[in-house]
Every structure is written in structure tokens, then in C-alpha cells.
């Protein structure tokens, strides 16, 4: 799923067969930056970048998308301690995705840049020399996922206490509160759209 945008195809099936505006934008942005691929779903443009080209690509992209919005990561894991896992764990390639969003300040353009980072060598270049705002985001990603950002000199924990052990946003990290008291669990999911069905009933009785 790295550079073949399966999901993008799915999304475009639901709309028209020709490319949407967002998809056109995604394609041209990818081409301009020389990135490896893109996906576009729900108007969310994702541009896939090689790990080695991470810093250069984002710096180049910031020419047209100057607003540094945020940086984070996703832990793609076959097993999860809490919550729902991935759809098809067998075919999943275990990895981190480091994601960074830049956007324009004149129009709705913006893209999420995605670099895949293997779990056994979780490191990527740091954006701090180019974006001052990246420091805290990288520190957060470092403590939450144990991803090293080479070039960030201040990778000390941001949120967590200094003596905290573990990386909470990893899928392998258990949520202690859930272990102790399994709520809401699978069984006790709040029947959410009660009100909605009520209103449907009300409408039904009217017609």
C-alpha cells in the first residue's frame, strides 16, 4: 500500500471516473516534487515520499505550501493491544509512517506527506533546521513512537515525565485503564443513533 494508491481507486469509484480537482492537484504536486506516489480520498491528499528524500521534498513543497501544520506518525502493526486492529493483518507490512502536513495560506490546497520508516530502523531526517515549529512535533513523535529524528538536538520527552518507560501511541502499548476495567469494550458500545432513529420515527409517524 506504499505507493500503489488502492484506497484512492476506491474513493474515485464512489465519485466519478474522471479525476476530481483534489486528485488532479495531488497528481501534479507529486510530479512537481518528484515524490513516489500519491493518494487522494475524502479530499485528503497524501503524497508518498522516500525516507531519504523526506527533508528535501518537504522543504521544496514549502515553497508553495508555506504553512507548517503538523507532524506525527502512524504505527502500522499486525497486532494491537487495545482498540481495533487493521483490516487485514496478514497482508500488512509492519512499519511506521511519518506524516507531515503543509498547506497553503491562500486557498484550500494542502497535502500530507508520508514517509515509510521500517520498525527496526526507526529514524528519519529532522525538519527542525527548516521549520522551527517542527521541534515539538518531532519530540512528541519521538516519545510516542520511538522514532529518531536525526538532526533534532533536543529530543527529550515533551509530554511524558522524564522517567516514563514505554511509547504510549505504539499499538503494542496497553492502555492500563482498559486492562483494569474493560469499558466500553466490544459488548458495551453505546447505541449511539438513538436520537436519530427517534427522529426518523417521528418523521415516519407524520407521513
Amino acid at each position: 500500500m506504499t505507493d500503489t494508491p488502492e484506497a484512492a481507486v476506491d474513493a474515485s469509484e464512489t465519485t466519478e471516473l474522471e479525476m476530481t480537482a483534489a486528485e488532479t492537484y495531488a497528481a501534479s504536486l507529486t510530479e512537481r516534487l518528484g515524490a513516489t506516489g500519491y493518494s487522494e480520498e475524502f479530499d485528503t491528499v497524501r503524497v508518498f515520499v522516500e525516507r531519504d528524500a523526506w527533508v528535501e521534498t518537504i522543504v521544496a513543497a514549502s515553497e508553495e505550501l508555506p504553512f507548517f501544520s503538523w507532524l506525527s506518525a502512524i504505527d502500522w502493526s499486525k497486532t494491537t493491544e487495545v482498540g481495533e486492529g487493521v483490516d487485514e493483518p496478514e497482508t500488512l507490512e509492519e512499519r511506521f509512517e511519518v506524516i507531515c502536513r503543509l498547506s497553503s495560506v491562500e486557498n484550500a490546497d494542502g497535502a500530507i506527506f508520508v514517509a515509510t520508516v521500517p520498525k527496526d530502523d526507526a529514524s528519519i531526517g529532522s525538519l527542525t533546521p527548516h521549520f522551527g515549529g517542527a521541534e515539538w512535533h518531532e519530540r512528541e513523535a519521538h516519545e510516542m513512537f520511538d522514532i529518531a529524528f536525526e538532526g533534532n538536538k533536543n529530543l527529550v520527552p515533551l509530554y511524558l515525565p522524564d522517567d516514563f518507560i514505554g511509547h504510549p501511541l505504539l499499538k503494542s502499548y496497553p492502555l492500563i485503564a482498559r486492562e483494569v476495567k474493560p469499558w466500553p469494550g466490544d459488548v458495551d458500545v453505546e447505541p449511539m443513533p438513538d436520537v436519530a432513529s427517534d427522529s426518523q420515527d417521528a418523521e415516519g409517524s407524520d407521513t
Binding site: 484506497a7 476506491d10 474513493a11 493518494s39 480520498e41 475524502f42 479530499d43 485528503t44 497524501r46 483490516d87 500530507i112 458500545v189 447505541p191 449511539m192 443513533p193 432513529s197
Partner: peptide, 10 residues
């Protein structure tokens, strides 16, 4: 009644 989101990023 039960909200299940499709696969995707938004």
C-alpha cells in the same frame, strides 16, 4: 444504527 466507517484517511 451502528456507525462503521469505511477504510480511509481523512
Amino acid at each position: 444504527r451502528v456507525l462503521k466507517a469505511p477504510k480511509g484517511h481523512v
